[in-house]
């Protein structure tokens, strides 16, 4: 900057240096732009879209008269295999204070440990403080996979 105008003969070298500097910079910047893009193109292992359907369990995972808590979006949900072998699924968030409910094989009811709230196997609040029934989800068995989905509401 300081020396250029007084000594124009240095200009070609200086120009060359600047071009190399610029070239390096542009290549480096392209690398820093394309690195995220390449990483972006490779899909992550988890394909959970947080959508309305989630893989809750596989067939055989649950015995008769047993329950399992699984993650459905940002909330826990409960998959119950009833005494007749059929599945049903509910939101596991207690309608009283939001504790996570569990299946009680001894009572054959869904039970909230926080305030002893109880729901029947249709999710209806039958005893204790819960003011509302649990939201019921749809269960579909496809091959060996058990999918749970929110009942369609657009």
């Amino acid at each position: 900057m300081r020396e250029d105008k007084s000594n124009p003969t240095q200009n070609p070298e200086r120009r060359r240096f600047l071009e190399v500097l610029l070239g390096t910079g542009i290549v480096a910047s392209l690398v820093s732009f394309f690195y995220p893009v390449i990483r972006y193109l490779i899909p992550p292992p988890s394909t959970d879209l947080g959508s309305n359907t989630v893989l809750a369990a596989t067939v055989g995972e649950l015995g008769i008269n047993a329950g399992k808590i699984f993650r459905f979006g940002d909330h826990p949900a409960l998959l119950v295999r009833m005494a007749d072998g059929n599945y049903s699924a509910f939101s596991a968030v207690c309608t009283h204070l939001g504790c996570t409910v569990e299946y009680r094989p001894d009572l054959r009811e869904i039970w909230c440990p926080c305030h002893n709230g109880k729901y029947d196997l249709h999710g209806r609040n039958i005893s204790g403080p819960p003011p509302r029934p649990l939201t019921e989800f749809q269960v579909n068995v496809q091959g060996k996979d058990i999918y749970v989905s929110r009942t369609a509401a657009t």
Binding site: M1, K5, N11, R15, L18, I26, A28, S29, S32, F33
Partner: peptide, 21 residues
């Protein structure tokens, strides 16, 4: 990335100066 961007911008600026002088 910002470092690289600054490098490019500065060398561009110097290059422009050099060309125009």
């Amino acid at each position: 990335s910002l470092g690289v961007i600054v490098l490019v911008v500065v060398s561009l600026w110097l290059l422009i100066r050099s060309i125009e002088s």
